[in-house]
Design a protein around this nucleic acid. Structure first.
Lengths: 102, 102
DNA sequence: ACAGATAGTTTCCTTTTGGAAACTACTTTC
DNA sequence: GAAAGTAGTTTCCAAAAGGAAACTATCTGT
């Protein structure tokens, strides 16, 4: 069960799975793109969560030399290994929804 | 991504994955058995987390009519559907450990 | 009678998490 | 020159989460 602690130490918090899931499906997104996609998040939390994910090498952050400076966030190769986890959780959530509805 | 919110609303907190994982591998455990298996947890948190899991029908709780009264906790059929999630997270954690070690 | 095991609950406290709003700083468009 | 878009940071606060220790209550064995 120590493996679960290790994994969750990088994935805890209200927004990490959402952000990773969003970056897995749509690649290369700016800060404002993420604000629009991750429903309800504020600038402070998005900024902090992105920093956490970058520190753990789950995402890439590239500052582009454009006129209003833009930043490109994308899932890293390492981050892509989380896909099975994200998929399983999403599938389970969908099945759960159906069971309480239908 | 709403599916992820739905799933995580039942699985949030520091101990849920541990408790579920423990009950998936070893069936029928008492409160004190769980205290011994879930490393570091206190009685308050174990009690609270077990209640949450029971409310969401992920585990079963049966009070046995024994002399010091004993309680049997076990994973429910519904709880068993979490197995793929638990397995994926544990596998990822193990791979992560290996990558920072070796 | 007392220690030890069962299964918790309660209280008190600290830490962590998260959110709203204001602010910085730079550039382009109107 | 003002508005709007880029990408955040900072401050201030409230709520949630979590932990340690003490306590309840019952029963068994010595």
């Amino acid at each position: 069960m120590q493996a679960i602690t290790d994994a969750m130490s990088m994935l805890s918090g209200k927004w990490k799975f959402h952000i990773i899931g969003t970056l897995i499906e749509g690649d290369r997104m700016g800060f404002m793109d993420l604000m629009r996609e991750v429903d309800g998040i504020g600038t402070k939390m998005l900024s902090k969560e992105l920093q956490d994910l970058e520190i753990n090498h789950l995402i890439n952050r590239i500052v582009l030399n454009t006129k209003p400076v833009t930043v490109e966030y994308s899932i890293s190769e390492y981050g892509k290994t989380l896909r099975p986890i994200i998929d399983e959780i999403a599938n389970w959530g969908i099945a759960y929804r159906k069971s309480i509805m239908g």
